[in-house]
Design a binder for these strands. Structure first.
Length: 280
DNA sequence: ACCGGAGCCTGTTAGC
DNA sequence: TGCTAACAGGCTCCGG
C-alpha cells in the first residue's frame, strides 16, 4: 500500500493519540510479521513501555519508546494500523494488537491494531533504527534534498528511470503510484536511462518527485483498495491521479489516452505523447 | 552495475 | 453463474 504520503498520514493519525500512552500488553495473533527480536522477547520488551513519539522515515513508521528503543513498522503492500475501541470487533486480518493504557489526559484505553491482508508487513524492535534504515536514501521532501543531491546520486549510473525511482536507496518513500505520477509530471519516459538525462531533465525530475509526494500529502494520501487512515477516514488522492490507474482516460495535459505498460514487472502508466522515449 | 524474475501471501477482478 | 488466471500500493534474494 502505502507510499510516503500514506505513511505520513498514518504517522499524523497516530501521533496525537498514542504519544504518552503506555503499552500494557502485546497480543501476537500471527507472529510472521515480527522480524526482530523473536515474538516472546518483543512482547516482553514492549510491555510497560511508554510511546514518546511517532516519526516517519521513507515508508517506515518509527515509534520512539521511553526505554530508548525504537518500534519500526513497515506496511508493505496491504498493511495498515488502526486505532480502535477495544470493544470493536476485530477485522480477520488483524495480526498484532498493541493494548494502550488511558492517555495522560484521561482518554480511555485504546487498541493499536496491525492488520495486513497479504502478510508482507514487518515489525522491528531495535536499539538503533539505523540497523534497519541504514540503506535508505534521502527524504525527498526535506530541504536538503536539492537538485544537486539528486544529480550526485545519479552520477555514473545507467539505470532505467522507473526502477530507479522505486529504489529506496536512491530516494526514500517513492512507490509505484508516485513514480508514475512524477514521471508524467516531468514528461519523462519510464524506460529512459539516467545517463541520457540532461541537466534540465534532472531538474524537472527532482521537482516532479517532490510535487507528486507533496500533492499526495495535501490530498490526504490515496485510499485505493483497503487503505484508510488510523481513524477510519479516507484520503482523496485517488481522485487526483493524472496517470496512475487512468488507462484509456485522457491525459490532463494533451488529452491523449493514457497507456499501461509493464516495467520491471510493475504496472506503469504513461502518456505516450507527453512522455516520449527519447525526448529532451 | 543493473535488470528481471521468483518468492513471500491473500483477496479481488477480468476473462472465458 | 462458476472457475481460473492475472494482478495488486513492497522488498529481498538470486541468476544472468
Amino acid at each position: 500500500m502505502p507510499e510516503l504520503p500514506e505513511v505520513e498520514w498514518v504517522a499524523r493519525g497516530l501521533r496525537p493519540i498514542v504519544t504518552g500512552r503506555t503499552i500494557t500488553e502485546v497480543e501476537c495473533i500471527w507472529p510472521g510479521h515480527i522480524d526482530r527480536p523473536d515474538v516472546a522477547e518483543l512482547c516482553a520488551r514492549l510491555t510497560g513501555r511508554t510511546i514518546t513519539g511517532v516519526q516517519r522515515r521513507g515508508k517506515y513508521l518509527v515509534l520512539t519508546l521511553d526505554s530508548g528503543e525504537f518500534l519500526l513498522i513497515h506496511l508493505r503492500m496491504s498493511g495498515n494500523l488502526m486505532l480502535s475501541n477495544p470493544a470493536d470487533p476485530r477485522d480477520k486480518h488483524v495480526h498484532t494488537v498493541f493494548h494502550l493504557a488511558a492517555s495522560p489526559a484521561g482518554e480511555p484505553p485504546i487498541e493499536l491494531r496491525f492488520q495486513d491482508q497479504r502478510k508482507f508487513g514487518r515489525v522491528y524492535l531495535v536499539h538503533d533504527p539505523q540497523e534497519v534504515l541504514y540503506k535508505l536514501g534521502p527524504e525527498p521532501l526535506d530541504d536538503d534534498f536539492t537538485v544537486e543531491v539528486l544529480r550526485q546520486r545519479l552520477h555514473g549510473r545507467k539505470r532505467l528511470l522507473k526502477p530507479l525511482l522505486l529504489d529506496q536507496t536512491i530516494v526514500a518513500g517513492v512507490g509505484n503510484i508516485y513514480a508514475d505520477e512524477a514521471l508524467w509530471d516531468a514528461r519523462l519516459h519510464p524506460l529512459r536511462r539516467t545517463d541520457t538525462l540532461t541537466d534540465d531533465e534532472i531538474t524537472r525530475l527532482h521537482a516532479a518527485i517532490r510535487r507528486a509526494l507533496q500533492r499526495g500529502i495535501e490530498h490526504g494520501g490515496s485510499s485505493i483498495s483497503i487503505y484508510i487512515r488510523p481513524d477510519g477516514s479516507q484520503g482523496a488522492m485517488q481522485n487526483e491521479f493524472n496517470v496512475y490507474n487512468q488507462t484509456g482516460r485522457p491525459c490532463p495535459r494533451c488529452s491523449t489516452p493514457i497507456e499501461k505498460m509493464f516495467v520491471a514487472g510493475r504496472g506503469t502508466h504513461i502518456c505516450p505523447v507527453c512522455q516520449k522515449r527519447e525526448d529532451k
